[in-house]
């Protein structure tokens, strides 16, 4: 197995507060990796650093062995590193079909119809993104990350704000697509049922540091994970 995405000594501070404190992470190619931890643990901060969104951070990042530490967001995206957002990040006053078309002009059309079909956006292509339901907007946010069939996908709570049924359905869709395309995934998710069922390995963040890492069984039994985060959930 080869390492698809690797971060070393990743740190990011807000004022004196270290939201990310010397974190190392390596995700193998084809792996689905869960990233869990309590609110404020630094999960989104880690995704921001890896995807190029963060400013004022330190460390090194490699994508398939290539150093992408200094690459801009759009250059990382062209190399196959894509992400979705915890807070929906779409183009409000633009028709959904136009957004996906513009994205595919930059990233290629590979798999575009698969994405539209899997995320059931086909009947919404003519609608403006700010005129559809929240659930539709979440699926659009995800679709924008999937355009051009990226290689590594960073998902920051793709089901945030969805109902239980909606999020279970979304998890199923994602699992199918990820398997079919053989994507490498790093997913942040609060629903432990989803995490334990789809992830090959899990990384636990706590106060900006890695608390534990292992397969679902190991994490479920890990004493400090149970006391710091899982509690009675496990």
């Amino acid at each position: 197995m080869t390492t698809a995405l690797e971060g070393r000594n990743l740190s990011r501070a807000f004022g004196g507060f270290r939201a990310l404190d010397d974190v190392d992470i390596a995700v193998e190619s084809g792996e689905i990796r869960g990233l869990i931890g309590p609110n404020g643990a630094g999960k989104s901060t880690l995704i921001d650093v890896l995807s190029g969104r963060a400013e004022n951070w330190s460390g090194q990042i490699r994508l398939n062995g290539e150093d992408i530490t200094r690459l801009k967001v759009q250059d990382r995206r062209h190399r196959g590193l894509a992400r979705s957002f915890q807070r929906t990040n779409i183009f409000p006053a633009i028709a959904i079909g136009t957004q996906l078309t513009v994205a595919s002009r930059a990233l290629g059309e590979t798999g575009l119809s698969d994405v539209v079909e899997a995320l059931t956006l086909g009947h919404l292509l003519d609608r403006r993104a700010d005129e559809v339901s929240y659930g539709d907007q979440r699926r659009l946010d995800l679709a924008l990350a999937l355009v051009g069939r990226p290689q590594v996908l960073l998902l920051d709570e793709p089901a945030a704000g969805l109902t239980v049924e909606e999020s279970l359905k979304l998890a199923e869709i994602l699992r199918d697509l990820v398997r079919r395309w053989g994507l490498t995934v790093l997913i942040v998710e609060h629903d432990m049922e989803v995490i334990f069922s789809i992830c090959d390995r899990i990384t636990v963040l706590h106060l900006g540091k890695i608390l534990a890492e292992g397969d679902p069984g190991e994490i479920r039994r890990h004493p400090s994970v149970v006391s710091a985060y899982l509690g009675s959930q496990a």
């Binding site: 995807s51 969104r53 801009k72 967001v73 759009q74 995206r77 062209h78 894509a82 992400r83 990040n89 779409i90 183009f91 409000p92 006053a93 633009i94 513009v102 994205a103 930059a106 990233l107 924008l144 990350a145 355009v147 051009g148």
Partner: peptide, 12 residues
């Protein structure tokens, strides 16, 4: 509409 997301779909 969204400068940041435009960069995340591959555009300068």
């Amino acid at each position: 509409e969204n400068d940041e997301r435009a960069r995340f779909i591959g555009y300068g």
